[in-house]
Amino acid sequence: MPITELSKNELCDTGIEELDVMLGGGIPTGSTVLVVGSSGSGKTTLCMQYLINGAKKGERGVFFTITEPLFKLTKNMEGFEFYDKKLIESGMVNLIDLRIISERLGLDTEKYTVEDASALLDILRDIADELNVKRLVIDSITALCYRLQTPEMIRDFIFKLGSSLAAMKCTTLLTSEVPPRKFQYSQYGIEEFISDGIMFLGDIERKGDLIRTFQLVKMRGAAHSRTKSAMSISTKNGVELAPLLKSRE
């Protein structure tokens, strides 16, 4: 297959073994990947694991949250064995609450105007530059867009975000919240166009139980399978993937 072989430093491995195998080594460096799922599907865990794994091999990262206060985020993460507090303390992984930033800038934290949003984007980029991060997470793009008033503003914002991210050298995961069991990738229907990749965290029903699933829907510049995997989240290993057994349901 004429897929360009990317050398190791052009790939950003997620540290989730089965996913990296699926990706042929990792996410092409500099990509923007949408991590889609309903609430509780493991988006935040997956993103954090990606940052921590990067930090463990010396790649600095930043996690921008806009949905959860930091203490809640760290409390949830402390249960996982992959989570290493020292990496946060040493600044290898930076957790930043975007609401505090907007508050400090004098923005209304619940409602953004076009100017607010682009000011925030500038700050986001400046922070990423200042910290010299290789890995960036925004959790969630849905919550960010929710603060904009009209569909036009959201459109504009997403495209601006896309071009800002493209100009940065870091590999970005954006989480996107969708209602459960809806096969859409984003709330506003356009987030997927600015992303180079889409990971879909869903579930299937089996005998009344919900089995977590993972699907790599798209990844530009990587040959990958689109088959669904079963996903497990455990405190010991965080997110893990396994081939999904075919049930007839």
Binding site: N94, I100, I101, L105, G106, E110, D126, I127, E130, L131
Partner: peptide, 27 residues
């Protein structure tokens, strides 16, 4: 916002953003 932005040092902003909880400002 823009004036503030130029006054606050980025390092300071990162510091603030990495600690504490936001006060939910009322509309």
């Amino acid at each position: 916002v823009y004036e503030q932005r130029s006054k606050i040092k980025l390092k300071e902003l990162i510091e603030i953003g990495s600690s504490g909880t936001p006060q939910i400002t009322k509309g």
